[in-house]
Design a protein around this nucleic acid. Sequence first.
DNA 1: TAGGCGTGGGG
DNA 2: TCCCCAAGCCT
Length: 296
Amino acid sequence: MPADPPATDLAEAVNDWFADAARPLPWRAVDVSPWGVLVSEFMLQQTQVARVIPRWHAWLERWPTPADLASAPPSEAVRAWDRLGYPRRALWLHRAATAIVERHGGEVPRDLDDLLALPGVGPYTARAVAAFAFGARHPVVDTNTRRVIARAVLGQEHPGPPSTTRDLAAMGALLPAADAAARTFNAAAMELGATVCTARAPACESCPIAAGCAWLIAGRPEYDGPRSAKQARFEGSDRQIRGLVMRELRAAHRPLTRAELDATWPDASRLDRVIATLVHDGLAVAGPDGFALPES
DNA sequence: TAGGCGTGGGG
DNA sequence: TCCCCAAGCCT
């Protein structure tokens, strides 16, 4: 027997654990459409599961297909997005729905390159849809999977800065050969990182691969490698101001004059600059009567 | 590739 | 309280 357990043992152990431990997330139900999966992946980008669940239900009830969303004005997508954050995602999802109607007959494409060509769809989302909606055997790597690999395989507390090429190769090396096991492992590795092998306080005592985890075996050494750049302070940032302006634009179902936006931020020139970035992003449109969400 | 992009949840 | 982090993507 080799001293190091083969990668297949790790995947098997994680998959066995997942069979019992998987949370019953609504987008994992067997009757969920590829569109439902795509919507969930958009909403889950940098956003916690608990905040997504109610929005996801409401979204799919209102727009059950890409064509339904594409036929609504983008303003309604931004409003329905509500306070999930990063409202550009709502715009991109609307544009993706339009592209799906125009280029793919209203059906979410299953080809990886077709998915990657959709606005707001990057390496993670494209592979997640291909794998979870269509069962394709692609490595899927999100922040949870990156952390699981860093600990279990590399013996580091935290992954280094992300690199799509390296991250996909690392996951590809662990991926079981069989399609079904590979699809399960993609979801199971993410689930392990989200619920057990967490960033802040990992529950190693209840981890299914504790016996083979390089980081745990090494005594959980503190990480001293390069970290991802930390987020800039939110308080007083452009992001905060953008959020305040967007809240006003969502609530007002008519254009708001610049004067009506005065109260959102005391520094007028700063506010002007931020509004310009919203217009640049397409989240706001400047018209003769003021600023509004995009109607087309 | 580094930085910008919302809005919270939890330690 | 404050700070880290969250199923990333785009430029």
